[in-house]
């Protein structure tokens, strides 16, 4: 993926995340927890498969 395209997408994400953190920190926390749980599950799966 071209770097500029990725940078633009990340800027959009950053704007949303900053707004969420400022306006609804509890939801921001929930989002981080969900990301952590998704990663944990994926890692567990990969460990058990290989």
């Amino acid at each position: 993926m071209p770097q500029e395209q990725l940078q633009t997408a990340m800027q959009q994400i950053e704007k949303r995340l900053e707004m969420l953190k400022r306006e609804n920190p509890a939801e921001y926390e929930r989002m981080l927890k969900e990301l952590a749980n998704a990663l944990e599950e994926f890692n567990r799966d990969l460990h058990s498969i290989v």
Partner: peptide
């Protein structure tokens, strides 16, 4: 497993 992970990350994208 990758599809499940992908769906969960998509869920986070929807959250934000």
């Amino acid at each position: 497993s990758a599809r499940r992970f992908n769906q969960r990350v998509l869920g986070v994208a929807a959250m934000i």
